[in-house]
């Protein structure tokens, strides 16, 4: 199906995401649709493990576009995100031709696109496939604030300026998804260039729907029991890290692999590590408290 049709309306986006087993609410489908229509990046913030990264994967799968991922980290810079010169290749070329060419000619030759190593951002701009790629800039809050400055030209003009070559413009505007866990505030300049969506913890009904879609073989009643227990755990105020959807899915898959069909205290005790991934939180959930959460005497 053509990309214009897949992202042609809010309902079409909703259906396309559902076809990829992603349970999106109406607000998220509208944000994705508008980001595609307006050609703007989509900034998705929210709780860890609630499906932010998955949006880009789902869109790539739905449109058939290449998924180009840039995982952000402390110290990420232009050479890892944008481009780098292939120094080894340049050196070899100089050594090969140093006797027959003038140094000035050689200099202009080695600063050519052939000697450019394309990193994810440049790769997304210069992709020449039939379908625009999906560029995922994951966990941008982990990168330095200076890196956000680097993103500004890419995200607003869809172009990159390389001093030795000039400006490279995007052949087709990629669909850009930026995710953040809100460990720090992003700059206003970056936020201004993006449309915004927030993914919080899902409601019970939505979590049951996600479990049914993502964990094959899970019966409705069992899925509801699992989701209800997770919702109650999330409601505990003193937990440092509340379980996200990713943890719920891991836990459900583990329970299913154990051949279980119901949530019991013993089972929860044995498998709580799938759901609660902080030692302090595990200590804070002794058997008596698990009983209370399960509603058993």
């Amino acid at each position: 199906m053509a990309v214009s049709k897949i992202l042609g309306s809010v309902d079409a986006v909703h259906a396309a995401m559902a076809a990829q087993n992603y349970v999106a609410d109406r607000g998220l489908a509208t944000a994705v649709f508008l980001a595609a229509k307006l050609g703007k990046p989509l900034l998705v913030e929210g709780e860890p493990g609630c499906g932010k990264t998955e949006i880009a994967k789902v869109l790539a799968a739905a449109t058939g576009g290449e998924l180009i991922r840039l995982q952000c980290y402390e110290g990420l810079d232009a050479s890892a995100a944008l481009y780098e010169w292939n120094y080894a290749k340049q050196l070899l070329t100089i050594r090969l031709h140093e006797k027959e060419r003038a140094p000035k000619d050689l200099e202009s030759e080695v600063f050519d696109e052939r000697f450019l190593l394309r990193r994810p951002l440049l790769k997304a701009l210069t992709a020449d496939g039939p379908v625009p790629p999906v560029l995922l800039i994951d966990e941008v809050d982990r990168a330095d604030e200076e890196f956000e400055g680097l993103l500004l030209e890419v995200l607003s003009e869809y172009q990159v300026t390389i001093p030795e070559i000039g400006t490279i413009k995007a052949t087709a505007i990629p669909f850009v998804v930026i995710t953040s866990n809100r460990t720090r505030e992003l700059s206003d300049a970056l936020k201004r260039r993006c449309l915004y969506a927030y993914l919080g913890f899902p409601s019970l009904e939505k979590e049951v729907a996600i479990l049914r879609k993502k964990v094959p073989g899970l019966e409705d009643g069992f899925a509801r029991d699992i989701a209800a227990f997770v919702q109650r755990v999330r409601g505990e105020e003193d937990l440092v890290r509340r379980p996200g959807i990713a943890e719920t899915l891991d836990w459900a898959a583990a329970l299913l692999a154990l051949g279980e069909r119901g949530v019991t205290r013993e089972l929860v005790e044995q498998t709580l590590g799938f759901l609660v991934k902080d030692a302090q939180d595990l200590k804070a959930l002794p058997p008596a408290r698990l009983d209370a959460l399960l509603g058993t005497p």
Binding site: V10, R26, G27, T30, A31, L34, A35, L43, E45, E185, D188, K191, R192, L195, Y196, A197, Y198, G200
Partner: peptide, 18 residues
């Protein structure tokens, strides 16, 4: 509802804004 979602996507930039 769609109009509100469009406002949320374009005008808000944080959960507090939402």
């Amino acid at each position: 509802d769609r109009f509100r979602d469009a406002c949320r996507s374009t005008l808000a930039k944080s959960p507090a804004d939402l």
